[in-house]
């Protein structure tokens, strides 16, 4: 009996200690709703420590698709939103959910596909033509299908190409409803084409037989914007600390830090804040 009691007491003590351990040092922090492309490309891992060192403010990033990130801001669950879908961002600000929107940086999209290239698009610089060829060849194409910024851009490019997806999509067009990484995994396993942001592609390991086939079209430009969730709508928003983050991102220091992020010597994001 004594042994049982001792063991039970020890177990209770262990569990109690586990549960009662203090949370990681309560410090100043903001919640930033952002996109999978900024998180999975590794940019935040490079950028945020510099900001925290400069200001003492910790940044908690929740990485979602652009549509979902904006929704998180709309519900008041984030202080700052950092995304890439200009039309949706402007709507977000116009509806009064966000304030102080600023340009931060851009990167570009690329069309990735199998090296065997059944639709013969390799080397092209014209995204509209490339998509036309893919649709004509009915070559497998993986779509994000998740209302992310990349998904919105993809739909714009199909429109530019004059391809009416609703009428023409068949089994070759596969909507995965997933983030950039999972979509890349899917494309890699079925040797399909897809639209990816360059950052996530460069940081992606499971490439299989995929390679960049189309790049360099001016239309593939992919700008990122940052904005504060409107404190007038959500009074608990950390206005001062959120603004400090926005100010730092667009400051010469923050911009230099963005330009300094490289993978294999290649720069991923290009600063674009206006002075």
């Amino acid at each position: 009996m004594a042994l049982t009691r001792r063991i039970v007491a020890a177990l209770l003590l262990a569990v109690g200690t586990l549960a009662a351990l203090p949370l990681p040092a309560q410090q100043r922090f903001i919640v930033v709703a952002s996109t999978t492309s900024t998180e999975q490309s590794g940019l935040f891992g490079h950028l945020l420590p510099a900001f925290t060192r400069a200001t003492g403010i910790q940044v908690r990033v929740v990485a979602l698709g652009t549509g979902q990130a904006l929704d998180t801001g709309r519900r008041g669950d984030a202080d700052v939103v950092f995304v890439h879908d200009r039309a949706a961002e402007d709507r977000f600000v116009a509806e009064g959910w966000g304030v102080d929107r600023r340009d931060v940086m851009y990167n570009d999209f690329v069309i990735v596909g199998p090296k065997s290239d059944p639709a013969k698009v390799a080397g092209s610089k014209d995204v509209a033509n490339a998509l036309k060829s893919i649709a004509a060849a009915q070559a497998p194409f993986v779509s994000r299908g998740d209302k992310s910024g990349t998904h919105a851009a993809e739909l714009r490019y199909w429109k530019d190409a004059g391809v009416d997806l609703a009428a023409q999509k068949g089994s070759w067009y596969r909507e995965t409803g997933s983030g950039m990484g999972p979509a890349l995994n899917t494309a890699s396993s079925m040797n399909a084409y897809l639209l990816a942001d360059r950052g996530t592609w460069l940081n992606f390991r499971n490439r299989g037989d995929l390679a960049i086939l189309v790049e360099g079209d001016r239309k593939l430009f992919n700008p990122y914007g940052v904005m504060l969730v409107n404190p007038a709508k959500h009074p608990h928003v950390k206005k001062a600390d959120g603004e400090a983050f926005i100010d730092w991102l667009t400051s010469p220091e923050g911009q230099a830090s963005i330009a300094g992020y490289k993978i294999g010597g290649e720069q991923l994001f290009f600063p674009s804040a206006k002075k």
Binding site: T36, G181, N185, N203, F204, R205, N206
Partner: peptide, 8 residues
């Protein structure tokens, strides 16, 4: 997350 990054 690591699956998303393709680091299987």
């Amino acid at each position: 997350l690591e699956t998303s990054k393709g680091d299987l």
